[in-house]
Write a protein that binds this DNA or RNA. Sequence first.
DNA 1: TACTTATTTAGTACCTAGTACTAATAGTTA
DNA 2: TAACTATTAGTACTAGGTACTAAATAAGTA
Lengths: 190, 190
Amino acid sequence: MTRVSKKERHKKLMHALNGDPFLTDGDLANRCNVSIQTIRLDRMELGIPELRERIKHMAEEKFDSVRSLAPEEVYGEVIDLQLDHSGTSIIEIMEDHVFERNQIARGHYLFAQANSLAVAIVNSDLALTKSADIRFIRPVKLGEKCLAHAHVVAKKGQHIQINIETKVMDETVFHGVFDVYCLEEDVLSK
Amino acid sequence: MTRVSKKERHKKLMHALNGDPFLTDGDLANRCNVSIQTIRLDRMELGIPELRERIKHMAEEKFDSVRSLAPEEVYGEVIDLQLDHSGTSIIEIMEDHVFERNQIARGHYLFAQANSLAVAIVNSDLALTKSADIRFIRPVKLGEKCLAHAHVVAKKGQHIQINIETKVMDETVFHGVFDVYCLEEDVLSK
DNA sequence: TACTTATTTAGTACCTAGTACTAATAGTTA
DNA sequence: TAACTATTAGTACTAGGTACTAAATAAGTA
């Protein structure tokens, strides 16, 4: 006289955990009116890890995504850098960088790459972006690798003008002119 | 003969957990060369919850952010939004956002806030930043809260021009003019 | 130097949310 | 009725803690 079939319970279980992954085996047992052991056998069959593992997994994902948005001093991997002259960096567009709907990279990631590179090029402890004029030439899609190349075009006192062009393969996807303000220490002490 | 002072150990602890929140008390005890009890007293004093609670908290945040899809798309907390008209969002400058040396926020975080807001305002599934002209008016420091206010100034066909001004208290710190390209579905089907 | 306080360590009982296992019972079916 | 599946019960054990008591070890101060 099995009240509800195993299959049905399994469905219910999956659904319940989808709605609230923080349910313990005890909670699930109550919901399904079965013993805790039954729930554990069910999880085994369905390959559902225990509560603590589920939670840990979610936390790790969260942690990783925080990482990708708040990285080190430079956003992107610098592969070449001539201080006060030029530089190149790479980023690969990952899941976290794109709009869900259309898989297109959010513009500020491309900007972050360019901005980081511009500031990194300036040979100073106190370099800040003053202004920028940027253009997104074509959308960048998930999985594409963006190569940003920067070079200093002018240097007038504390203002340094840097041109940045970002390419995917041979196609230009982003272009920017950055005006970086450089407050050198010896200037400060004068 | 306390090898390392309590204060120093507390700092080390905070830093370690910031870098890796998945460390158990045992791990921390090893790193600091103290007993597990000392670590637990330290956590008490510093108000740091146990590993499982930390993990759970992160998982809950992740879960919440997955639930509400819209805010995930936006960098910053949107506190007001009138589609196709105006919007406001807030970000607080945290440790991760600043240069270590001078505690000044990296420009691309301010840009990310503005860019997200600009795209969010446009009432379309397919809104992409086409170009932007931005100015960093004064440096923003650690702990400051940035209020970005955006409003649509022009709409010509698929191009929408949005002005954004970001303030800390009453001071303008950032200004930008964004040109967002909006590919509406009915336009597509024509 | 002796007293006092702060800091650190040790150890116990208990908790949750499990795993891994054995054994028994209930219900169904050939 | 025997065989099988599904379910339940119960035990031993685990990690990573809490909450507590007690003791040992500095360190500061009168």
